[in-house]
Structures are given as structure tokens and as C-alpha cells.
Design a protein around this nucleic acid. Sequence first.
DNA 1: ATGCCTAACTAAGTTAGA
Length: 264
Amino acid sequence: MKALKIATFNINGLRARLPNLLQWLARERPDIVCLQELKAQDKQFPVADFEAAGYGSLHHGQASWNGVAILARDTQPLETRRGLPGAEDDLQSPYLEAAVHGVLVGCLYLPNGNPQPGSKFDYKLAWFEHLIAYAEPLQASEHPMVLAGDFNVVPTDFDIYNTRSWLKDALLQPESRACYQRLLAQGWVDSIRHLYPEKRVYIFWDYFRQHWQKNSGLRIDHLLLNTALAPYLKNAGVDARVRNEPHASDHAPAWIELAGRKQR
DNA sequence: ATGCCTAACTAAGTTAGA
């Protein structure tokens, strides 16, 4: 397989953030990008801008909120699925999947779940169950696959600056974390945590209380690799400087580098 | 227990994010 850089980026409003995104694409040249929270309808998706930047694209939008997309450099991603089995009509929590550069790419935005407890939290857990059921055979598949996106789960207390003001938040609930651990228990490799088990890594810093300036961040966006793909993992990280730009999203892009041959 | 900040929709105020 060829060496690839794959990124996931909760853009938090594609139209408001398009200049930032195009600049980042030009600088980093990722081969594959999973985008979440487009907050744009399909007709507002800037296909031509991405084409001009050298990227083919697939999108699954929704007015005002949510929405996901997959970008592929120098090629058109081949759509393999839209929506999870049993939740195809669920427009609130899109799942988009494509074959790109020999890798199956699942791009997801897992429901936030706040306020908790309540119907939104129930909805989050129900959607998580659909994901767990769908992911199991793919983990063991011979086809290399990455599940990338905003999981809206802080896996452990090590993945947040301080739990104090988040203890009631849906992102930290034991039920949310248990679902995430059940997914990992299938054999998926959490790229960043796998390579950097002792490192504080944050991907989201909310707009409140100068959290970026104080580095009060959370790790909630993840790139999970199945057993067929994990041996190729070479490096992983977060482009945190993107969070410091004017008009930045509250998330930064997380990325992995896959080597052309097995690393282990 | 709530606001803080930001975008979208829409036209000043709400919804949603997390």
C-alpha cells in the first residue's frame, strides 16, 4: 500500500471556515480528510473549491448543524455507505464511508448527548450501539479500515485537562466511555493513544473561559485502525496551531501517517 | 445551576455545540 496521511477535522461550520480549511489543505496536503459539523446543506457544499485545491469529495449535509464529508487528494472517493445499518434515515448523526487510496474510510459524527440525562443522551447511546454492531466485522476484515471522526467521548480522565466542570457532561459519562471501550475491545487501535500512551493530547478547546489560551483541552476526535491497517501506522498527532488562527474552529485537525510497508 | 463564545437562521433572539 502507498504511504498516506489521513486527517479528521471537526470544522464547526464549513462556510465560515472555508478559507482556514483551504489554507490548511494547501499547507499539509493530507491524502484523506474526514470533516464533521459542516452546518451546511448539500447545495452549499463547495465542491468546486475543493476540486480547485486538488481534492475530490463526498458530502452528507444538513441545514444549520451536523453534516460530514470525505475529501481525497487527486481522486474521487468511492462511496460505500451512507448512514449506519438500522439508522440509514437518521439525518442527525451522519455516517459516511468511502474507499480511497486502497483504504476504507468511515467518517462519523457521534451525537453529542447533552444535556445528560435525557432523550439526547439516550439517542447518543443508541447510535453508539449501532456503530458497535456495524464495526465488529469490519475490525476483523482483511480490508484496511480507519474509523475517523468526532466521537464525542473523552476516553479517560487523562484525555481532559481537568474533570471538575465536566463531571455531568455527556462526554465523560461512564456509559459513553463504556461504549468507546467496547469498540476498542473489538481490536480497533486508537492511533494517538497507541503511539503516545504517556502524552497529554488535546484536540478540542471550547470557546469559553480562554480555554485555548490556558490549554484546557479535551481529546474527543479519534482515528481508529482495524487489525489489517494498524501495522502500517507510522505517526499520529494534532495540528494544534490551527486552533490559534483567526476564526478557528474549536477543534483542531488530528492526523495519522501510514507507511508504505508494515512498521511492526 | 448557569454563563462564558461562536455560527446559523433570521432580523433580536433562539438553538446548538460540548
